[in-house]
Design a protein around this nucleic acid. Structure first.
Length: 415
RNA sequence: CGGGCUGUAGUAUACCGGUAGUACGUCUGGUUUGGGACCAGAUAGACUGGGUUCGAUUCCCAGCAGCCCGACCA
């Protein structure tokens, strides 16, 4: 994209009412615009990041055999009454039509997916089955905060699985957890699978995937030696205690943000709706279900929150809105510089490299550098009179200090 | 939802019971052009409603909004 044509405006200031790093950086660098507390517009740069995260999530969900679909956000009151959520879930957004008909905005989709799937899948032969979507969720939070970390409207991947037995559920549950680890690793994050309460969902423990950050809202205890991790809400253990897995390690307490979770739903939803399947013996049974969430927009916030320096964001390559930030410094030789940078831009596009091209003619070098650092694209390539004198460009990675001259012929090889 | 703080321009602020000034930003023009350059000009503001008062941005009340602590958190 040419910056002169792109809808991208960075800002030199940001309101002091936005105290978290992710909220400030994302707002200032032009990724998001806050409409009200907990509700954001995702600007072109921000949308690219959401799409990149979604792409990785989608690939790993497809890899465990789940089918993507898209369910409604506007729900009839009745399905929420069926499961008891209408009266018991306080974060459920409820709205009235002009004829006083009542609706809910989806904050999770068990109420939609259970009848949807079980009205079509009624034989053990069709199970197991998993479906997922990436869609907007609404939660009537009393206190939205921390930039993208706790919103009233947010993008979430939610998967639902249906199984003939607890054993088969357990098998898939383990696979899903592994897929989650893959996702977070690909995003450049270290997530800890944390034992936590099942909430109103389940009596059993659930696993929350936690990323350590002070901007988070959960306190977790994690082992320094093994992968044991537990939410303090369900344990008597304290920081410094020995790991209960007898690995010899000690537990450390830390603040974390929940970027994903997996739940064993048991047979609740099949029973609530009175929908099940016919087993091999011809008997009706309720499936064992699981649900698996990943907060896509929250992940964007967590990444910005944890990967930055005083100048701006440091996006991992898999997530970055563009791979390369090509910057032309026209100087006194605008004609030649732009001619060379236009050519390189075209070549990069031609070979499929995602590049943001700062082709602004009247912007100072310092301002371009500051914008580039703020936005945080992993590779910066500069073309100027100076570099052209050597028939080269200057290449610098966002997370490194040193830059190097690379000849125009070889630029493609390093990107 | 309980408790608290705060609402003056995009941001940060000043003054004031007699209807607002500065800086930065932004925009335009010019000079610049390797780390947010310079000059000139312009732009833009008292959250909303009620009350007290001759007069309210200022004092009082209510609402709304934002932020903080807690609670909550599928």
């Amino acid at each position: 994209m040419r910056q002169t044509k792109y809808f991208l405006k960075t800002s030199k200031t940001v309101s002091e009412d936005e105290p978290t790093v992710n909220g400030r950086l994302l707002e200032q660098a032009g990724f998001v615009s806050k409409l009200m507390a907990g509700v954001y517009t995702y600007l072109p740069l921000g949308l690219r990041v959401l799409n990149n995260i979604s792409k990785i999530v989608r690939e790993e969900m497809n890899a465990v055999g789940a089918s993507e679909l898209l369910m409604p956000m506007l729900h009839p009151k009745e399905i929420w009454q069926t499961t008891g959520g209408w009266d018991n879930i306080d974060v459920l957004f409820k709205i009235n039509s002009r004829t006083e008909k009542e609706y809910a905005l989806g904050q999770s989709e068990e109420e939609v997916v259970t009848p949807l799937v079980l009205s079509r899948v009624q034989s053990y032969k069709d199970l197991p089955l998993a479906v997922y979507q990436i869609g907007w969720k609404f939660r009537d939070e009393l206190r939205a905060k921390s930039g993208l970390l706790r919103g009233r409207e947010f993008l979430m991947k939610d998967m639902y699985s249906f199984h003939v037995s607890q054993e088969d559920f357990d098998r898939f549950y383990a696979e899903a957890k592994q897929a989650y680890f893959k996702i977070f690793t690909r995003l450049g994050l270290t997530a800890k699978a944390t034992e936590a309460s099942g909430g109103s969902f389940s009596q059993k423990i659930s696993y929350e995937f936690m990323v350590l950050t002070d901007a988070g809202e959960d306190d977790i205890l994690y082992c320094e030696t093994c992968d044991y991790c537990v939410n303090v809400e369900i344990t008597e253990l304290k920081s410094g205690a020995s790991c209960p897995k007898s690995c010899g390690g000690l537990l450390t307490q830390g603040r974390a943000s929940e970027v994903g979770n997996v739940f064993d739903l048991g047979q609740k939803y099949g029973k609530d709706f009175g929908l099940g399947f016919t087993d091999v013996g011809g008997n009706k049974q309720y499936p064992v279900m699981g649900c698996y969430g990943i907060g896509i927009s929250r992940l964007m916030g967590v990444i910005a929150e944890t990967m930055n320096d005083p100048k701006g964001i440091l996006w991992p390559e898999n997530v970055a809105p563009f791979k390369v930030h090509l910057i032309a410094l026209p100087g006194k030789d605008a004609e030649n510089v732009f001619s060379a940078s236009d050519k390189l831009y075209a070549e990069l596009i031609e070979s499929g490299v995602e590049v943001l091209y700062d082709d602004r003619a009247d912007t100072s070098a310092g301002e371009k550098f500051a914008d580039s650092d703020l936005i945080g694209i992993p590779h910066r390539v500069i073309i100027s009179q100076k570099t052209l004198a050597d028939a080269s460009v200057e290449h610098k990675k966002r997370n490194e200090d040193k830059s190097s001259l690379v000849s125009l012929d070889q630029v493609r090889q390093i990107l």
